[in-house]
Simulated assay, not measured.
Amino acid sequence: MIEISESVTPGRSPAVRKAARILFELAAHHEAASFGELSRRLAMPKSSLADICGVLLEAGVLARDIDGRMQLGGRLSEIARGLVGGTPLLELFHAAVPHAEELAGRTVALAVLSGLDAAYLSVRPGERPLPLTLKPGIRLPAWSTGTGRALLSTLPDPVIREMHTDAPPLSPSGQLFDMERLIEAVGLARARGFASNADLGEMALAGTAAVVYGRGGPLAAVGSIVDITSADAGSDAEAVRALARHLSESLRREPASPSEA
Rank of each mutant, 00 (worst) to 15 (best):
A167I: 08
A27V: 00
I2Q: 11
A27N: 03
A80L: 04
K18M: 11
R41P: 00
E6A: 14
R252H: 15
P14A: 03
E238T: 05
I183T: 08
I160W: 09
G115I: 02
K135M: 09
V108K: 01
G85E: 13
Q175G: 11
E25I: 00
R192C: 11
A50N: 11
R245E: 08
T145V: 02
A233C: 06
V212C: 13
S5Y: 06
M44H: 07
T107Y: 05
D166K: 10
T208Y: 04
I160Q: 04
R181H: 06
V16L: 13
L182Y: 02
L38D: 05
E91W: 03
L116M: 14
E254H: 07
A80K: 05
S39F: 07
S48W: 04
A204G: 07
E180N: 12
E3K: 12
V8Y: 05
S77M: 05
L132K: 11
A33E: 11
G82E: 10
L90E: 10
L251G: 03
L23Y: 01
R40W: 06
H30Y: 13
N197Q: 06
A233K: 04
G193C: 06
P98G: 09
S47K: 14
T165Y: 12
D117T: 00
E162F: 06
T208R: 02
P169Q: 07
A256Q: 08
L155K: 12
L83W: 12
I138M: 15
G85F: 01
E180K: 07
R241Q: 13
D227P: 00
A100W: 03
R139S: 08
A15C: 05
P255S: 09
G146R: 02
A59V: 05
L103M: 01
I138D: 04
R81S: 12
I22V: 15
L182S: 02
A118F: 07
R241T: 04
A191T: 05
P14V: 07
G73R: 04
I225Q: 13
L38A: 03
